[in-house]
Amino acid sequence: MNRSDFREGLRGGFPIMLAASPFGALFGALAVENGFTIADAVFMSATVYAGASQMVGIELFGNQVQPWLVVLSVFAVNFRHVLYSASIAKHIRHFSFVQKLLAFFLLVDPQYAETEQRGERGVPITFAWYLGFALVIYVPWIINTLIGAVFGQLIGDPKAIGLDVLLPVYFLGLVMSFRKRDRFLPIVATSAIASVAAMHFVGSPWHVSIGALAGILLAACLPSERPAREVPVVEREA
């Protein structure tokens, strides 16, 4: 293991860690508000390690949605990672199998973006660099979740201090981060109308599956705007 590569990774990941920290704490606090214990919240951050989908998970869990639907929604929100792992495969071909297993576990949005950029620039991707970049984000993510969860447990009525508005606003921010994508408006409008109608006529939790399916089907049916990209666009998760 090359120490200077590892340190370079730590330095590179540091600003990402700072930017993600408030979201880790926010997740911890909201998880506790949605019925998690402090240990559950920390366990989820340590094992799932995907901020947006963790928020989706606690929101649906708090609304007593069926477990299989919660897992399916987490899977759907994280689906972009399929494109990431396909795309960085060529840059980490020299990793051992165990190194690959670990590398894919740590493949969050900024990790993908940085690895891809380094690869495109022709800078070699060493495992030491990859691990340094990943750990300086991963370990504080867990610690911040713990801090947020401890804080969340001290809060009496989340509505009185406005915590209930944070999840919808956070999800709104995520949706808006996709606005440069092909056919963004028709997809979002379709899913919005379908989910509100499903909420009204069928009831929760079906608004998630019905609304999402409507937008996805529309995307499959619309004619393509431009040729497919080679490299997937990185989302700004937090």
Partner: peptide, 16 residues
């Protein structure tokens, strides 16, 4: 195209 639409479509159902 369908796969690309998945995250925005799912998240919209939590917003609207």
């Amino acid at each position: 195209a369908a796969l690309n639409a998945v995250p925005a479509a799912v998240l919209t159902t939590l917003v609207a």
